Amino acid sequence: MHTLTDPPADAAVLSDTETVAAPPQPRTLALGFTGDGREYFRIWVVNLLLTLATFGIYSAWAKVRRLQYFDRNTVLVGASFDFHGNPRAVLAGRLLSVVLLVAYHYAFGFSTTFGVMVIVGLLLAFPYLMRGALRFRLGNTSYRGLRLGFDGSVGQAYLAWLPPVFTFLMPGALLALYPGKPGLATLPLLLYLLWPLMHARIRRFQHAHLLFGDQHASYEVKGRRFYRFYLVGGSLGLLAAFCAGLAGGFAGAAAGNGRSAALFIAVFTGVASAYLAYLLIGPYMVVRVSNLAWSNTRFPGIRFRSTLPARDFMKLQARNALFTVLSLGLYRPFAVVNVYRFRLAHLHIEVDGDIDVAASRVTTRDGAAGDSVADGFGIDLSW
């Protein structure tokens, strides 16, 4: 026979009307963009004219205006992002980037010793500057007063960036050091077989050290998964070369025989191959890498899901490229807005409960010089 006993003093007693609170259900949030091409076109034209009038000095202010426009028009749950970067700090970084680029291009023209010193300097400086770029861009971005951030260490930056920088710089350096032995310059090219792993490590460095308030991101992706993207991208490149060569052959046959026809075929095939590769490989790699990386990035209670469609993105980029060429570059701001809106539309955020409680501490970071140097080398960090 069972007997009833008094509950422990620390036990929770529920009345007949009380129920246990259910855990918050996940909600999928969509990012939106409230800007448009015409509005950004006016900003773009003013930035371009002032940059030309000031011999490039205004480009720092132009960059801040551009980032502020896109961040302030990016909306999540009724609130927009914001960018707080200092244009003067960006200008200092731009000047540094010009110095580094000039030194890289003309180093061996002065002397072999100076050239080697510049190459070593770039190898040592570039990973540090790329880390600074991420810290500056994210640390000056906020959402509802909460700063984003990046806490990757200097050592981790060198592990991520030193191998690809070495692979990129060594062929040119060896060719300049040993002009009579061009075969030596091809030896570092074997390292490109490891390029997918290098790319994977860079993405890990970028995503695994993101901060939202005081919350750290987690990121788990095997590097070998990037090989599939490069194999497919290489196949698309071969397909583009084959199609361009076939079209060039037919065009050359129609033009007749002779040296002029052969020259026409060669030029046409080269230009068409590059253009088709740009329209196929570039969008494909962006879609596959973005989907993989973002869909495996998460914060406590916050998960990302990227669903970019490769074919639709290729069509969008092809249309943007065509209109940009036909408009002599004036369609460029519309193309940028189209791509940005398209990518946001396919990036979804799943949260448990309220996104406002996902972070509790605001952090700020510096490093504008690294961000501007990254722009100088043609590297886009705003993924």
Rank of each mutant, 00 (worst) to 15 (best):
M1R: 12
H2R: 13
L4P: 00
D6G: 05
D6H: 10
D6A: 14
A9L: 14
A9R: 13
A12V: 15
S15L: 10
V20Q: 09
V20S: 05
P26S: 06
P26C: 08
R27N: 09
L31M: 01
G32L: 04
G37K: 05
R38M: 10
F41H: 04
N47T: 10
L48T: 14
Y58H: 10
S59P: 00
A62Y: 07
K63I: 04
Y69V: 03
F70P: 01
T74D: 04
V75D: 10
V77Y: 11
G78K: 06
A79H: 13
A79T: 12
F81P: 09
F81Y: 14
D82F: 00
G85F: 10
P87A: 07
P87F: 02
V90Q: 02
L91Y: 02
L91A: 12
V98C: 05
A107G: 06
F110S: 10
G115Q: 01
G115S: 06
V116Y: 00
I119Y: 08
L123G: 02
A125Y: 04
P127T: 01
L129A: 05
R131D: 03
G132V: 05
F136K: 00
R137M: 12
G139S: 06
T141C: 05
G145P: 01
G149Y: 03
F150G: 05
F150I: 07
D151P: 01
A157V: 02
L159A: 13
A160N: 04
V165H: 05
T167E: 03
T167C: 13
M170V: 11
G172N: 09
G180R: 04
P182K: 09
T186S: 13
L187R: 07
P188C: 07
L190I: 15
Y192R: 02
H199C: 15
A200Y: 05
F205Q: 02
F205D: 09
Q206L: 11
L211W: 01
S218N: 11
Y219P: 09
G223R: 10
R225E: 15
R225Q: 15
R228G: 10
Y230F: 15
L231E: 03
G233C: 04
G234I: 04
L236F: 08
G237L: 11
F242G: 11
F242V: 13
C243I: 15
C243Q: 07
A244T: 07
G249R: 10
F250K: 13
G258N: 05
R259D: 14
A266G: 00
G270S: 12
V271N: 05
A272M: 15
S273W: 11
S273F: 07
I281R: 02
V286T: 14
L292N: 02
A293G: 07
S295P: 06
R298I: 00
F299G: 08
G301M: 06
R305G: 11
S306N: 09
T307I: 08
L308D: 00
R311T: 14
D312C: 00
M314H: 04
L316H: 01
Q317H: 11
N320Q: 02
L322C: 08
F323G: 09
F323H: 12
F323R: 13
F323Y: 13
G329W: 05
G329Y: 07
L330W: 10
Y331N: 11
R332I: 14
R332V: 15
F334E: 08
V339N: 09
Y340W: 12
R343Q: 15
L344C: 03
H346N: 11
R365D: 14
R365I: 04
R365K: 12
R365M: 13
D366F: 11
G367E: 06
A368M: 02
G378W: 04
D380Q: 12
L381A: 01
L381R: 10
S382G: 13
